[in-house]
Nucleic acid binder design. Sequence first.
DNA 1: TCCATTCGTTCGCCTTGACGAACCATGGGC
DNA 2: GCCCATGGTTCGTCAAGGCGAACGAATGGA
Lengths: 193, 193
Amino acid sequence: MSDRTTPTTGSDVELIGLIAASIRRERERCGLSMAELARRAGIAKSTLSQLESGAGNPSVETLWALGVALNVPFSRLVDPPRPMVKVIRAGEGPVTHSARADYAATVLSSCPPNARRDIYRIEAQPGETRASDPHMPGTVEHVMIGAGRALVGPTEDPVELGPGDYVSYPGDAPHIFRALAADTLAVIVMEHI
Amino acid sequence: MSDRTTPTTGSDVELIGLIAASIRRERERCGLSMAELARRAGIAKSTLSQLESGAGNPSVETLWALGVALNVPFSRLVDPPRPMVKVIRAGEGPVTHSARADYAATVLSSCPPNARRDIYRIEAQPGETRASDPHMPGTVEHVMIGAGRALVGPTEDPVELGPGDYVSYPGDAPHIFRALAADTLAVIVMEHI
DNA sequence: TCCATTCGTTCGCCTTGACGAACCATGGGC
DNA sequence: GCCCATGGTTCGTCAAGGCGAACGAATGGA
């Protein structure tokens, strides 16, 4: 159950309600009217109306067409987001299975489904704070420090990290990355849900 | 076009053909008969048969039910996979936008859509090779070294990496991770397409 | 004020998805 | 040989999705 796009509880009603909400959300995010979106997607305006009102159980072609028109990866139309801040210090965290004297693997983030992630390498020197404007709603960032030290996280509550430390936090709120040591090396995984 | 789950070319026929193939593939992977799968998904055997034969345009509820029964993330039923090996040495790679003297961000992997990724921290000491059996088809692994050195990649053609080096490779083929230096630190992003 | 435009919902019609039962295989067991 | 179980396809029916047109509401000029 850790990773389901397919909740065993995905009972009909919730699913279509979810889709309804998603379509409306994405449509308004694009600033499109029903008529316009329907036209672009090549479906009837009435169909779209019914879908957004929570009635019906669209066919995949219909949903696909909407995905194309809205320019979103389709699966975003069927499951939602949600973020949080999590810190795992070097040495902390449950070590998975094949733990041996010379090899330790720690699960830092267990697959939120249908996310798109960009992976960045960060090389930073101590200096002024690098503040990021919030990204798309639902975005989550994961940071692990490879070397050096850095102050990372939500602007109002950043965390100081050293080698091996990991943090994740909402990317759709203001956040910062400030190197505290020379040649600080980090990986940032930016996850657009 | 870099990331589309929603190819502008997603013309009807291809889509349903794709779904047909996906369903059959996943069903056989589970070793289920049509009758059994239909029963678990709560749909008619005939419906399933038609879907797998490429006829029809299932509703999302139907597809969802199949996703639940097959225990796959639903989106896997609508788009396919494909991998590759890519190495980006420390210092290499296009540096994105806000490049400053004290901060450099390099895009290592640009968002394949609908992927689920687990993030692992690896702490390893020099020792015997850690070989992984191939995971699910379509899996891709991304590795960045934070400290130390390691031999990483496909078993038959691994790559030696140092701090800041990055590699990605198919996870559905045998691959290894062997630390070459003490206190080697790495991040592995395991991506289940 | 009146007309025109746009946005969204509601209303019949027709198509089509989903269902169950009946229908061909195939393959053991006896 | 027979019989029965199992995997898959085809057929006829019914409900539901998708469509276009018609409708009411809100906005904005002239």
